[in-house]
């Protein structure tokens, strides 16, 4: 499905540009996007190293294990395939906490770290494990308490009450998260049988 979507965007994009007589746009966009990819990845190196260094400290101080134990009743339900002492759990919790607080810069390193730990316990390394899918469902539908960027945009656009969308945002994302977790549970059971 990813292959199909990727190819679809590429082919349709080029065809539309050709029809519109703007084929130069394709070249320019492709080059710019490739450059942006490098910028993004390299831009991540600093924060990534910082957070992974801190996480290592938290691990060795026993913090992460403590966190995992604290959330274990919830986590055991969401991730039945993981061992209760799995090192992935700490990274998952840190990722979700960073997401909730709107610390996007911190969330990505923890998330990628979580994926690495989950991959170590994945019986079939080519294929997404059920725990990974649950994690990504939580990660992408996770609540953000303060959508800071969009509040800034609203403020700049002269909103009378830039923060009035916090409530609606939390509501909408809670519904999305509930549906994601429920659907994940159903799909997981269906996939197993």
């Amino acid at each position: 499905m990813v292959n199909a979507i990727w190819l679809f965007m590429l082919v349709i994009g080029i065809v539309v540009a050709a029809i519109n007589g703007r084929i130069d746009v394709v070249t320019e966009s492709a080059m710019k996007a490739a450059e942006l990819g490098v910028e993004t990845a390299f831009g991540l190196i600093g924060v990534m190293s910082l957070w992974l260094g801190l996480m290592r400290l938290a691990e060795e101080a026993g913090f992460i294990r403590g966190l995992a134990r604290f959330f274990s009743p919830l986590i055991r339900r969401l991730f039945p395939t993981l061992r209760p002492d799995s090192p992935a759990l700490g990274a998952i919790i840190m990722n979700l906490s960073a997401n909730i607080l709107g610390l996007g810069n911190a969330a990505t390193p923890f998330g990628l770290k979580a994926m690495q730990e989950l991959q170590k316990e994945n019986p079939n390394p080519d294929e997404a494990s059920t725990a990974m899918i649950t994690f990504l469902a939580l990660n992408t539908s996770c609540i953000t308490l303060i959508p800071a960027t969009i509040i800034a945009v609203r403020l700049k656009a002269g909103s009378v009450n830039p923060t009035e969308i916090i409530g609606t945002t939390i509501f909408a994302t809670s519904i999305a998260m509930t549906v994601a977790v429920t659907a994940d549970y159903i799909m997981r059971r269906r996939a197993r049988s």
Binding site: M9, I12, I14, A17, S29, G37
Partner: peptide, 15 residues
Amino acid sequence: IGMLVSIRIFVDSGA
């Protein structure tokens, strides 16, 4: 890079 290139072409072309 793979994703950004494909998405960017799709958007910038008007598709």
